[in-house]
Structure formats: C-alpha cells, structure tokens
C-alpha cells in the first residue's frame, strides 16, 4: 500500500515538473517574441547554468523524468558531463559534455536518417 502511494506521488512529481517546465516555455512563447528555436536554446543554457551552480540536481531528484526529459535536462546532462570530466583532466573537461549527451544526438541523427529514407513530408491538415 505504501509502495503504491509513493509510486503515485513520484508520478505526480514527474507530471508536475515536466508540465511546469513546458508551461514556462509556453509562457515565453505567448508573452515574448521568442520563437521556439530561441526558447529551446534558452532552456538549454538555463539547464547548463543551473547544473553548473549546483541547483538542478535537486530538481532532478524531485521530478525524475519530469526534469530530465525536457530540453533543460539536456543542458543539465551536458554540464554534468563537463563537470565530471573536469575532475579527470583538460581533454575530458572539453569532451565530457558531449560524451554525456552523445546517445541523444546519435540516436536523433540515426533515426532521422532512416525515417527520412522511408517517409515523405505531408501537407499539414487543419
């Protein structure tokens, strides 16, 4: 019983964290002139900075996937990788960030490539 409650609470935290981050993104779209690409870059930089100053880990511990799935989590992973690399040496400090997110970039490139060979763009429906 306790296990179920804690699972539900955990999922609620995931939903709330992920939802809140997307809500902030939507607020930026609605109230500023920022285009989606700029917002993604902003979130990413924010993720890097928050992790660099040591704040974002707490958000991840609370929100789990809710904090890592949004693009801000991508920034978090980058900074985390770079910081861990810096403990080892100069080259690792440079390459650590990319190493941490390479799975995301590699899979995005690979799937995009495969699917683009198979599928075609279709007109938007409205």
């Amino acid at each position: 019983m306790e296990g179920i409650i804690s699972t539900i609470l955990k999922y609620l935290a995931v939903f709330a964290t992920g939802g809140a981050l997307c809500l902030i993104g939507q607020l930026l779209i609605n109230y500023t002139k920022l285009t989606p690409a700029r917002i993604l870059v902003l979130f990413l930089v924010l993720g890097v900075i928050l992790q660099a100053v040591g704040v974002y880990q707490a958000v991840v511990d609370f929100g789990n996937a809710g904090a890592t799935i949004p693009i801000i989590g991508f920034g978090y992973s980058l900074a985390k990788g770079a910081m861990e690399g810096a403990k080892i040496g100069f080259l690792e400090a440079i390459s650590g960030g990319f190493k941490a997110v390479t799975i995301g970039i590699d899979s995005a490139i690979f799937f995009a490539y495969i699917f683009s060979l198979i599928f075609r763009s279709r007109t938007k429906k409205c």
Binding site: G18, Q26, L40, K124
Partner: peptide
C-alpha cells in the same frame, strides 16, 4: 498544433526538429 511548448520542450521535440527537416529536404 495544439500542445505548443508541451511538445517542443521535451526531448521528443528535439527529435521532431531533427527528423522533420530531414524528411522535408529528402
């Protein structure tokens, strides 16, 4: 179209932004 940032901000939105031009410029 209706989710806005809800589907842009998650990592799936990143995949979308890589895959859609790849398909488009095929």
């Amino acid at each position: 179209k209706f989710a806005g940032a809800g589907s842009i901000v998650p990592i799936t939105g990143f995949a979308n932004s890589v895959t859609s031009p790849a398909i488009e410029y095929k």
